[in-house]
Write a protein that binds this DNA or RNA. Structure first.
Lengths: 242, 242
DNA sequence: AAGTGGTCTAGACCACGTC
DNA sequence: ACGTGGTCTAGACCACTTT
């Protein structure tokens, strides 16, 4: 038989898409409860089980968080236990103290070929670049260079970064309405250049872990390109294969 | 109110545990179909929906693979598309040709302190050690040292490894009944020692990506400890954060 | 007591693969 | 035509949190 409906989409997935639009449009904000399953079922005129399956998928993607007896909440980067999600760095001894972010520079520029390609911008479009250090117990471990679309992050300055007590993604979420939901990282081993070596207080040429990341928001739209150099003498990058 | 049942376990999870025992005991082998949902529901005297939820979880953990219209199958490492699951290496240019495994050595030894701890063995217990090279398009990219419990892998020799056309985990699965289902990796950047540098044909001191892995089989039992040194001049380690 | 998500059931129908 | 997994429904009851 001919394949009649190559675009077949089950009901629960259509419901999911409607809810995704709600999230993207800001109908429900990070940290807030969304309506109960029964309410959503009534709104969309489907059974509770169908809404449930839509929510299940979104919870599996870390977009929503279910809490029995309380409701279903829009996920947020403020939750401290979600810190390991986007920074998989662990001390070689058991020390679990969280890192401190030390912003170094923040300036505006025009997107070059590569930045434009990665962030899906026009070459020459305004971008914002951040350089910062991550320290564990006062010792420098990561130096990051972060490229952001200038339009979205118009109000981002060094002062804003210095005043921020939370993670970078918490700041992006609360101050710029930009929520990171997924990222791809590419890891390589490189030799420390002079500038990085100075910041990390190691000899030039020291092997460093280069971590290149593209982060995406709703609709798989890339909104951050970053390159970090990790000093892995006292820390390691942890990954779970499953 | 007092928490009456701290050990509450829903029905579908009990079913799942029963099925896990079936997998572990070898009742169903990798690649084979398991009984239909209706059959399992009858066997366990529960509804099909409950069996379904048990299978859903196991499919999410890559233990089972559902195929609409055909049945549910025990996952296997033979599936070529599962190669990226445990070897997240990608060419920097788009070249997608798979790697070739070149076994170098295979010998028996007694577990030292660290190997015993990681593999949950008695110090002095027999272990098997494998050294091998991974080449892409003929060029050496990875040198691996692999520690295995000697009891389980008694028949493993260099000849067996050389005769094997599939992945290492396929061999372990088919020849030794040992299926890897999960692994933890720790990544660091290190300088190439002399031996590795020679094998990878790079100068001593070249930055290499050190990948230390512990792989687990059913019941979270560790059964492999490996350390790989990756040459990342032409390849990178890809990771998805979500 | 009331409201939320979590579990379990039973049955109907759909999409896919095989015979 | 048949068997498989996939979707959808409606209703009952359980576990957790708040009022």
């Amino acid at each position: 038989m001919a394949q009649e409906s190559p675009t077949f989409s089950p009901l629960y997935r259509q419901i999911k898409n409607l809810m995704l639009q709600g999230l993207e449009a800001g109908e429900w904000h990070p940290g807030e409860v969304i309506p109960s399953e029964a309410e959503l079922a009534a709104r969309f005129s489907v059974s509770q089980g169908t809404v449930r399956k839509a929510i299940d998928e979104m919870a599996a993607e870390n977009l929503l968080v279910r809490k029995q007896g309380k409701g279903t909440f829009v996920a947020t980067h403020d939750d401290p236990r979600s810190n390991f999600r986007f920074l998989r760095l662990m001390s070689l001894d058991g020390d679990g103290t969280p890192p401190r972010s030390v912003p170094l520079e923040c300036w505006r520029a025009k997107a070059g070929q590569e930045a434009a390609r990665v962030l899906c911008l026009e070459p020459g479009a305004p971008i914002t670049i951040v350089r910062r250090l991550l320290t564990y117990s006062g010792k420098p471990v990561v130096v990051d260079e972060i490229y952001l679309p200038g339009e979205v992050f118009r109000g981002l300055t060094l002062e804003v970064l210095q005043d921020c007590k939370d993670s970078l993604y918490s700041l992006f979420e609360s101050q710029f309405g930009m929520r990171m939901i997924r990222a791809e990282e590419r890891l390589r081993a490189v030799a420390a250049d002079r500038s990085s070596a100075e910041l990390l207080k190691v000899p030039e040429g020291t092997p460093l872990l280069s971590v290149e990341r593209v982060a995406y928001t709703y609709g798989d739209k890339p909104v951050e390109w970053r390159r970090g150099l990790y000093l892995t003498s006292g820390h390691c990058y942890v990954n779970e294969l499953s």
